[in-house]
Write a protein that binds this DNA or RNA. Structure first.
Lengths: 352, 352
DNA sequence: ATAAAAAATGTAAACCTTTACATTTGAGAC
DNA sequence: GTCTCAAATGTAAAGGTTTACATTTTTTAT
């Protein structure tokens, strides 16, 4: 609405050239103390501040980052984002958040590939780096178009990808360490005496799900327990999915005494389903969540869950990205190992 | 890393001037079909796409928006954001999310006013409009600096503010309709036979809290019920706060049969506190949340709550903002009225 | 007082577009 | 074969910075 003041006007008012104004702005190059004071006064007077677009154009860096995630409503992503934004802001970067609303169940929908549109947007806006925290990347089978779009993106700016690796693409790939969490949760349940432990939530064709399913099978095997396919009930990662998955599982009438839920939302949905069957947690069924979203101490029942330290993960990835952008080598804190927090929901020992 | 192709190079490769390339890019101005085809081929070949920074500079609009909120981790804000981002994206705007991490309890901290920094950032980056959804604006007493910073922001670009009105600032102020929700929730509880209803959660000095507290008192008065100060237990808007507020309330030993929680998180925390006292919901204490975050059907107990239609609010405000930016007058759907969804947590009639 | 060196300032190109205006080309009318 | 007019294309300014380089002014040494 109101056109903003430019460096030219400041220079004019001060009777100097724009170069001089630029010099005091950037504090480089000599400038007489008196001139400096005058220019600063005029800048203050007009609340002048340089146009970032022009700066970015000439400096060839925009001081902005792109973050691509499917659903900021999901605590996993919002936690991650919070850390990323905080660190970015501290380094004077602004963050463009692209909420791709990716749902693998809509795989066949037309709109799935909006991610490629976002990639192009990032390229056009000349963001200095991109963080990809989920979306198509989470699928077992990533489309050709996606790969080539990502390839193009990553060969033009630094890109950090969380959760999976793809060959021949110049991104920094960061593992989510999803397996370890499953393993410690399972071992805990076993230590409590459980022998038939169900796997609840998560969706087929999703990388993480597959990864965890593998960890589940491997851990069972290592502990010499039988893998029972009927004890696996997939669906998706939200509350209603937890409900559905648990309900389906219970209907199967295959006996089990404990559940491994993919995250707290799934766990809460599952608790509801269990209750609806007249059973309770942990008395009838023990429950552990693989991914802590909430402070389980405040839930009913107090929920045992694996703290994957999503905050730490956020700090880690943003450091990697900033390092790549600024070509620095600031030491980054290694992401913490997942840690099981045992609470009420898994605490009743099973009578064998 | 890899320098990107510019319009100049495309022009050179085609043996035409950049003006011609620009014309085919923007589809305006005549250009011979053969030339056009050739240019398009070369553009395709190099995956050329115009530099948005340069475009924004000359077009004087950046196709980007700023969204300022205190905590994207809070479902109220993330829901709002999702709608805003979706609509913005559909209109080819990108969204810069500023997470101000505002906590009024840290009022005395030095870092509180990071919002002013974000305001300046928005101005510098030449975003086309800003949405302010919370932060200092939520305080009863807004600082002078904040007001003047907001004033400056709003007199240079369109700004939509959710939740409160400030005099003499050229923003579009949108009410949150917080009172109505309190009122219908209370009336519901009264209809269930409750006469002593506690007010739980929310923080002092916060506009919404105050607003709701007023609605609480007014509704009580209208229904000829006594206002008992000891039944008001403030804290903040998160789960632990719900726990604390409810625990404090219970300790007071002032009898009550129902609770009005400020939102689902507060409600969940309160449920936990109630349980920890050996009481239960709704048998001993009925509970309604004023602001639905989760689908209460999946919670334990199934939580009665007021659906404030945050999705609709998001759609509404982004439409207002886009209209202001584009100087259009696209009809906007009025935000929906809050609607109470009655579930288990408030359903046991009190025996008088 | 003068030369040399240092400090202060200015000029202009570059960053990449868009677009008003100018110029060239070609077709159709006579 | 001119002339007119429209279509196609080109030129250059503008948008707001930064910065290498050039120029001017001041200081210091002699």
């Amino acid at each position: 609405m109101k056109p903003s003041v430019t460096i030219t006007e400041i220079a004019k008012e001060c009777g100097v050239s724009i170069a001089t104004v630029s010099r005091v702005l950037n504090g480089k190059g000599p400038v007489a103390p008196s001139t400096k004071a005058q220019i600063e006064a005029v800048i203050e007077k007009y609340h002048y501040s340089p146009n970032s677009l022009a700066q970015s154009l000439v400096r060839r860096q925009s001081q902005s980052l792109g973050v691509i995630m499917p659903d900021i409503t999901n605590p996993y992503f919002s936690t991650l984002f919070t850390e990323v934004e905080r660190a970015a802001h501290n380094s004077s970067f602004s963050v463009i958040l692209c909420n791709t609303m990716f749902r693998s169940s809509s795989l066949l929908d037309q709109k799935v590939s909006s991610e490629e549109v976002y990639f192009q947007m990032m390229l056009d806006k000349k963001v200095d780096g991109v963080l990809i925290a989920g979306g198509q990347i989470d699928l077992m089978e990533v489309s050709e178009e996606y790969i080539s779009a990502l390839s193009r993106l990553a060969s033009s700016i630094p890109v950090v990808v969380i959760g999976r690796t793809l060959p021949d693409i110049p991104c920094t790939f960061v593992d989510k360490e999803t397996r370890e969490g499953v393993s410690i949760a399972l071992k805990h349940l076993m230590a409590q005496g459980h022998r038939r432990i169900a796997f609840v939530g998560g969706e087929e064709h999703i990388y993480t799900t597959d990864f965890r399913l593998k960890a589940y099978r491997e851990t069972l095997e290592k502990m010499h327990l039988e893998y029972v396919p009927e004890l696996v009930s997939l669906s998706d990662y939200y509350m209603p999915d937890g409900y559905t998955a648990a309900a389906v599982l219970l209907e199967r009438q295959v006996p089990f005494t404990a559940m491994l839920a993919m995250n707290d939302n799934v766990a809460l949905g599952a608790v509801r389903a269990i209750r609806d069957q007249g059973l309770s947690v942990p008395e009838d069924i023990a429950l552990v969540s693989c991914d802590q979203f909430y402070n389980g101490d405040y839930l009913l029942p107090r929920l045992s869950s694996v703290d994957r330290h999503n905050n730490a993960l956020g700090k880690y990835v943003i450091q990697l990205l900033l390092n790549a952008i600024q070509e620095t080598d600031t030491p980054v804190d290694a992401p913490l190992l997942p840690q099981l927090i045992v609470r009420e929901s898994s605490l009743l020992r099973v009578r064998k």
